[in-house]
Amino acid sequence: MSTNGLTSWAVDLAEIGAIYPFQGTEVPLYIAGLAFWIWFHWAQLRNEKVELQHEMDADASGEATRAAINAY
């Protein structure tokens, strides 16, 4: 049993192509990869919205903001 079909390196390399595991699953893997990418944007935009809302609600007096500005 081998996840890439190879059980020994005593082979002619000229006859060996892909050696990653689970060959034949590339298309589902690709779709999962695309989904992961889109998920990142969705999750990040959601988190960013929450973070910005927290910052909008913070420092009502403006004291910390003035300190941040003065720190340059």
Partner: peptide
């Protein structure tokens, strides 16, 4: 409404929450 940060946050700084 997702291109630019609000004016208040721009003055506070983007790192305000992390810095606090």
């Amino acid at each position: 409404g997702i291109l630019r940060i609000p004016r208040k946050v721009e003055l506070e700084g983007l790192d305000f929450e992390a810095n606090q």
